[in-house]
Structure formats: structure tokens, C-alpha cells
């Protein structure tokens, strides 16, 4: 996995899609996971879903043509990206703690 930094929106979208979910479900899940802090707007979410589909990090589940009900799920590549991001976040947290808290 290349050394990439995920945006907060992408991070929470991937995390939400560990279980199959449609667009509105992702918005609600991201908001609840972040205790109401992350509010994904529809336009931002739509663009991110399309980019993630193109990248192969998420997949649209078959069977639903109506885009209102279409469900998505994370792929193996998406999980790898999330895991790499967790390592990066851990490094940020540890460095921050070490320097600020001594």
C-alpha cells in the first residue's frame, strides 16, 4: 500500500462500509461514530463514493439499480488502505503525546 493520507471523509466512509450500507446510512454512521462531529454532505459523499468505486476500495452490491437504495461495501484493498491509515494515525498520536506530554 502506497504511503497515502486518507481524508477524514474517506476514512469514515471506509470505516462505515465494513458492513453493507447505502449512502444515507453512511452519513448517519459517520456522524454517530464521531459523536456528531463528522457530518458528510451529500455532494461530498457522492463524489467520494464514485472515487472509491473507481479505485476499487469499495464495491456496489449487485441487485439494486435504484441509486437511492444501492448498497456499498469495503473491499480487501479498502481494508488495506484503512489499516495503513491506522498505522499513520498511531504514529501521529504517539509523536504528539511523546513531545507534548514529555
Amino acid at each position: 500500500m502506497a504511503n497515502v493520507t486518507l481524508t477524514e471523509a474517506v476514512y469514515y466512509i471506509l470505516l462505515s462500509l465494513v458492513e453493507p450500507m447505502h449512502g444515507y446510512g453512511i452519513m448517519q454512521k459517520a456522524e454517530s461514530l464521531s459523536n456528531g462531529r463528522v457530518k458528510l454532505a451529500a455532494g461530498t459523499l457522492y463524489g467520494a463514493i464514485n472515487s472509491l468505486l473507481e479505485k476499487g476500495w469499495i464495491t456496489a452490491l449487485p441487485g439494486e439499480k435504484d441509486s437511492r437504495k444501492k448498497e456499498y461495501q469495503i473491499t480487501q484493498e479498502g481494508r488495506q488502505a484503512l489499516e495503513a491509515e491506522l498505522l499513520r494515525l498511531k504514529e501521529l498520536l504517539e509523536n504528539g503525546k511523546r513531545i507534548l506530554e514529555g
Binding site: 449512502g23 444515507y24 451529500a42 455532494g43 457522492y46 435504484d66 441509486s67 437511492r68 437504495k69
Partner: peptide, 12 residues
């Protein structure tokens, strides 16, 4: 059209 449907699915 897909985009408008998507936004509507979020309660708008």
C-alpha cells in the same frame, strides 16, 4: 439524474 436521486435519498 442519479445524483439528484442520491441527494433526495439523504432526506433533501
Amino acid at each position: 439524474r442519479r445524483y439528484i436521486e442520491f441527494v433526495e435519498s439523504t432526506g433533501a
